[in-house]
């Protein structure tokens, strides 16, 4: 019983694992092998019509040229499709960042890039948005995977935007972006406006909230730091040996 209780806890710490990312060595193999990738990418085409279901998966198997029993490769069945969607969309962001860089005449700041990448990731759900609540239901029953994926996504967005902070703000940045993303994604499932205009506005408001909280905290911190430093210097100027 004790080990059963502990197991999910250790899996919850997974989001905090950020192993060394090497540039001179290839990345270790991902969660899906070559066959699984081909089946899942074919199955993804059926999601808009058949949803995140075993039916899509079976159709994907036959499209990729495997027998229908190949769905046995995926013990998690429909949830594998959700995992695949999250993985594929996250990997696609690498290409998006080049598109962003090529867009504007003047280079974008980190904040603007984060916002734009978040938006493009949300638009990655556009095709399947009417089926997305099925995926959310599946994700809710696999909390450790969903938290892990969310953490990986926000880490990816901050990294691709060129953020290099490695202090406590590393944590606050990722936490706030994860919150904004999860909230906006949920909002998007009920958005019926043209071109997801309302979702865009919702996201802008969330970023603005985050920015104002951040700048308030920053100002308070600056004031406290300045006052403490000034007080210390006054004491020193009076000859106190501190």
């Amino acid at each position: 019983m004790a080990t059963k209780r502990l197991l999910p806890l250790t899996r919850f710490t997974q989001p905090l694992r950020r192993p060394y990312h090497s540039y001179t060595h290839p990345a270790p193999p991902g969660p899906f092998n070559e066959i699984e990738r081909s089946i899942l990418s074919s199955a993804a085409k059926h999601i808009p019509s058949h949803g995140f279901t075993s039916t899509s998966l079976a159709l994907g198997c036959s499209d990729a040229g495997y027998i229908a029993a190949s769905t046995n490769l995926f013990p998690k069945a429909a949830f594998s499709l959700v995992e695949w969607h999250l993985l594929a969309q996250r990997e696609a962001l690498k290409g998006e960042v080049d598109a962003i860089a090529g867009d504007g005449a003047k280079p974008m700041g980190v904040g603007a890039k984060v916002k734009e990448l978040t938006w493009r990731r949300l638009m990655g759900n556009e095709e399947v948005i009417h089926r997305w609540q099925e995926a959310l239901a599946l994700l809710a029953s696999h909390p450790s995977t969903s938290i892990h994926e969310l953490a990986l996504l926000s880490d990816e967005i901050w990294f691709l935007s060129g953020d290099v902070s490695v202090d406590t703000s590393w944590y606050t940045k990722r936490a706030s972006l994860s919150t904004i993303y999860a909230a906006t994604e949920l909002f998007m499932t009920t958005d019926k406006s043209v071109g997801f205009q309302e979702t865009r506005e919702f996201m802008e408001r969330r970023f603005e909230d985050g920015r104002s909280i951040g700048s308030t905290l920053g100002s308070v911190g600056q004031w406290v730091g300045f006052t403490a430093h000034a007080g210390l210097n006054v004491l020193r100027s009076k000859g106190v040996r501190i």
Partner: peptide, 14 residues
Amino acid sequence: FNGLLAKHRIRPTA
């Protein structure tokens, strides 16, 4: 080390 952490995408200490 700050540069290396950012480059290799390593989480700073909590």
